[in-house]
Design a protein around this nucleic acid. Structure first.
Lengths: 133, 133
DNA sequence: CCTTTTACCTACTATGTCAATAGGTTTTTA
DNA sequence: TAAAAACCTATTGACATAGTAGGTAAAAGG
């Protein structure tokens, strides 16, 4: 299940896309509009900056803004950054040691097929697809 | 992510389908073949009996067996029984109180579309599709 | 009847993740 | 120099995961 981190990150992205200006938008405003704890969002947004989704600026007049156009983001990269992986089973998550039953596993092909479907779904959706207007 | 409960349950079902006889198959045998702790499988298999996937018989000569033909099971019902829900987000899981942001939520349509895709995928796969031979 | 084999049952536990909260420090602009 | 903002470290309560431990009941075979 997609956790609040992934879902909130997506909402932050949408919020920034919809309220796009040249200047930075303070987290306080985003938190208020979205009804999410600002303190919790700090953790999330920090990862988004590190992950290259946003740029932040300290000090008065600071805040966050997108560093690309909304159509240049896809939902998959946002979710994958926050969730760590989109894989359905531990056996397929990146960095997992190969399962010793891999070759004989009767279910692995299904999980692979599933993961591919999920990947295509989320990587095929752009941020701009979620923004209204 | 699908937990061991769901994955192990599926493997038990496949194991029973492949080793199908008229008689019951002891859990000890399944655990040995699958390389899974018998004690842990007890918990899982118990839920499967309660959920109507298997029948169990105590005593000598007892064990477990399928109560339908392999083509009469689908993967979705097995996973949903063990995982509780296949929903991608809490907002869509059965029994969840409606989210107050439901009507304005920009992401809900995408989650719904995703859930439908996932449902169709797993409910479209039969247990017999996973059994070799 | 008695032993073996099996399911069935209750309880416990270590570990980790989730979803935050708390309180402070640094940076920048007006 | 004061305000506003990001940035940083630490902590917490609740819950889920993935088991383990040790026993009781039931059924069949001899």
């Amino acid at each position: 299940m997609i956790s609040t981190k992934g879902r909130y990150a997506l909402r932050v992205m949408i919020d920034l896309a919809e309220n796009e200006t040249d200047s930075y938008i303070p987290l306080k405003d985003i938190a208020a509009r979205q009804g999410i704890s600002k303190k919790y969002l700090e953790i999330i947004v920090k990862e988004m900056v590190t992950g290259g989704l946003l740029t932040g600026a300290s000090g008065k007049g600071g805040g966050y803004k997108l560093c690309r156009q909304p159509e240049e983001y896809n939902v998959g990269e946002i979710l994958e950054l926050m969730e760590g992986t989109l894989s359905s089973v531990a056996c397929l998550a990146a960095g997992t040691n190969d399962c010793p039953r891999k070759d004989a596993c009767q279910t692995l092909p299904m999980w692979s097929e599933y993961d591919e479907m999920v990947h295509n779904f989320f990587y095929g959706k752009k941020l701009s697809d979620l923004v209204k207007g």
